[in-house]
Design a protein around this nucleic acid. Structure first.
Lengths: 233, 233
DNA sequence: ACAATGAAAATTGTATACAATATCGGCGTT
DNA sequence: AACGCCGATATTGTATACAATTTTCATTGT
């Protein structure tokens, strides 16, 4: 729901966490870039408490590594790791649609989802400002609909690792159109309890997304800011 | 490796985190039990900094719920959630053995694993003091062997939620024997690239484990310490 | 007697100060 | 000139102080 880049910081820790998280996912830091608490304090003009909490969150999430000699470094984002994440995501999402095809369905829920994506498809270039969020919402909503919260949470954890890829995709109109078609097909296959086609649709959707990853990642790495240290000697 | 209850606290935050984590996983707190920073400070005789960091870790991991700006509460551990966790775990572990049967194998690794579990099987009652750790190690090692670190990490996250169940199981000798048999069969099926039997073995292993969950959970809930507040009225 | 209001207490968010430890560089000795 | 020792510095771990906000409870007015 949050619109643009406005940050209505409910608290500083979360705010800093989100900003650092976004930077890392967008690969704005050189791999292995070192982060210090004091340095971030100076940059964000806050005390060490919220900075430290933000760093801890990043470490927990795996975006920042805490070195044996007690300092923080931005974790390197390997291409293989993205592929691995997509692999796991596919496995889990296949389970999601399998479960949905088996269990009792909330038709009102499917109706809302279908209406939304029909609307998005028809008003394509304009309505799709928040494509990444819409896409994440779709997949998350499906996962939640299974009623298996652990499954949903596991998927959410994966998604947070590949978030930046979706951010990179929002400019590609062809991709958006395909996404709409795929999502509508997934919805209807689930409604018909047509497991086979649901699996095909979700596979196509995710694998096609992954096929865009390498280019996006390489492009992002090209944009990478070289700041191993804040003042490089 | 860590033996008994000795706490060689490398730092207080992690120490407190682990102790609280264990308490919660063992269901020693009544569901919804309220935690306050100051209260934990008094109990552990430390300042709020490490306590706060421990609580944040617990929130991140989902063991503690944080009401914004208000307080912390031990999250209720539903039976359904355990079942859901086992469900996701099975899905992921099936993928693990599928991958292992497909890819190039590290035979030395399989040999070590087989030797270990043969040893455990033959010297059963005595050697199995750390059954839970051994079991977790086995499954984690297999996941790592796939080379998909995201998969391994996702599984580790699930395992941390059902850790206490394994702790409850270590007394059951029949369970231990079955575990050994299952694990050896999994190893050998993977070695033979016998996907079908590998899947059967891993399914049996996990589903049988889950079948013990409800009893363990109910037993644990029976032992639950009623401490909604530290001094109840 | 009950409800509304306001003050005090409780609790978390943030800032700062202090402690411990590791890293790096200079200085002296051989 | 090289090696090692020692101290200064940098950095994180922990403690405490202060701010902001919510909750609780007592007091007061109707």
């Amino acid at each position: 729901m949050r619109q643009g880049g406005e940050k209505l910081a409910e608290n500083l820790s979360v705010d800093i966490y989100e900003r650092l998280s976004l930077r890392i996912l967008k690969l704005e830091y050189a791999p292995g870039h070192r982060l210090t608490e004091e340095g971030l304090c100076a940059e964000f003009q806050v005390s060490r408490s919220p900075v430290r909490e933000a760093l801890n969150m990043l470490v927990q999430r795996g975006l920042v590594k805490k070195n044996p000699r007690q300092n923080y470094a931005v974790r390197e984002l390997e291409l293989k790791e993205i592929r691995d994440a997509y692999h796991v995501r596919l496995v889990l999402e296949l389970e999601v649609v399998s479960l949905l095809c088996k269990q009792e369905l909330d038709h009102a829920f499917l109706d809302r989802l279908e209406a939304r994506w029909t609307e998005l498809r028809d008003g394509l270039p304009d309505l799709f400002i928040h494509a990444a969020e819409e896409d994440e919402h779709f997949h998350h909503a499906l996962a939640e609909a299974t009623g298996n919260s652990v499954l949903a949470k596991s998927l959410a954890a994966i998604d947070s690792q590949i978030h930046f890829v979706r951010l990179s995709d929002i400019t590609n109109l062809e991709r958006l159109a395909k996404t709409c078609v795929d999502h509508l097909e997934i919805i209807n296959a689930v409604r018909r309890r047509d497991l086979k086609n649901a699996l095909i649709a979700i596979s196509r959707n995710i694998e096609w997304a992954e096929s865009n990853v390498e280019a996006a990642l390489k492009a992002a790495k090209g944009r990478q800011i070289g700041k191993k240290t804040r003042s490089p000697d």
